[in-house]
């Protein structure tokens, strides 16, 4: 286990987030801090509002109440409230993850174009734009090579397999170097072998983080992955957060059901890329999550399985701590 600096800076914080669709309360009192370099798996039963929370973080569907703060690198502490979707949060959806009218390389390069140039620039300074575009495509090709996609460069999304598409979608997000990348059930539609391949790719990104920390640099990738697959959640993430509508809200002092909240928050073992997948190794944690998060008959106190991580800047020990309890 790599040792961490005493106070890893935050990437994202949700403060008292509530959300409702009409009278139906979906999210109740969500408080969550994500440290820079963390790979957080968000799990929960269907209908618990995982995607709603993710959309709130992306900024497309702001919550009814509460705040989502984003901490940008090199900016003073305190964080910026999320206000609509922006280039500092990357997103990979399960479907419709790529622009159908662009090849893989163009799909990856398009972010650089949209972010760094404007329409008037592209129209009226055409010569300059063409040179810059070549540079963008070169950078895109580099990222594609890194994700083992060099053969897909000239393919359109319709010509790619599902796994390739999700890889390109991740490349598309990575090239922007966002503060945090959000994955909404990214591998849900893939077959088992492809899925394992892509999980491995995420572990390689995590490994880059680990190496960066060892060399005293800031980890580059922070990630939230929404999944309904518990094995995937434990295997890919270094921290599992469970969102559930099954919790004892009366004991927490609410008169009526406030919505799903976080009932599980623990570290999960970190795996090296290409290591053997010994799922039995974390069978205990899986069972624990299944009981605490997924079982409608188990209504427990909300913080029974929640770890209260030390808040920065108070030292010391931090994530990810010892392997699963």
């Amino acid at each position: 286990m790599p040792s961490l600096p005493p106070d890893p800076p935050l990437a994202l914080e949700c403060r008292g987030v509530h959300h409702a669709f009409g009278p139906k309360r979906v999210l109740g009192d969500i408080n969550l801090k994500v440290a820079r370099g963390q790979f957080l798996s968000l799990v929960g039963p269907s209908g618990c509002g995982k995607s709603t929370l993710l959309r709130a973080i992306v900024g497309t569907h702001p919550p009814r109440r509460g705040q989502i703060l984003l901490f940008r690198q090199g900016e003073p502490a305190g964080g910026c409230p999320v206000d609509g979707p922006g280039r500092d949060r990357g997103i990979v959806y399960q479907h419709y993850s790529l622009f159908p009218f662009l090849t893989a390389e163009q799909n990856v390069a398009v972010g650089l174009m949209l972010d760094r140039t404007t329409i008037p620039y592209r129209c009226f300074q055409w010569g300059k734009w063409r040179r810059l575009r070549r540079e963008h495509c070169r950078q895109a090709a580099e990222v594609l090579v890194r994700l083992k996609l060099e053969d897909a460069r000239r393919l359109y999304p319709q010509e790619m397999s599902g796994g390739m598409r999700q890889r390109v979608a991740l490349a598309q997000a990575l090239i922007m170097k966002p503060e945090i990348i959000l994955l909404d059930e990214p591998f849900g539609a893939l077959d088992e072998a492809t899925r394992e391949d892509l999980q491995n790719m995420l572990l390689e990104l995590y490994d880059e983080n680990v190496r960066a920390r060892q060399q005293g640099r800031d980890p580059a990738h922070t990630l939230i992955i929404v999944t309904h697959e518990l094995n995937e959640a434990i295997y890919v993430g270094d921290r599992v957060v469970g969102l559930s509508q099954y919790w004892d809200w009366r004991r927490a002092g609410f008169d009526q059901f406030p919505g799903s909240t976080i009932v599980y928050d623990k570290a999960s073992p970190v795996f090296k890329p290409d290591s053997a997948r010994r799922f039995e190794a974390f069978a205990r944690q899986r069972e624990e999550i299944r009981r605490a998060v997924f079982d409608p008959n188990v209504l427990q106190e909300r913080d029974l399985h929640v770890t209260y991580w030390n808040n920065p800047p108070s030292p010391p020990a931090h994530l990810p701590p010892s392997p699963a309890p």
Binding site: V58, P85, G86, H95, Y96, G111, L114, D115
Partner: peptide, 17 residues
């Protein structure tokens, strides 16, 4: 698809773009 619209925003697109 609205996903692609949001995606474009996360890639730094303006409304006009």
């Amino acid at each position: 698809p609205e996903e692609l619209q949001y995606k474009a925003y996360t890639l730094g697109a303006s409304n006009m773009e």
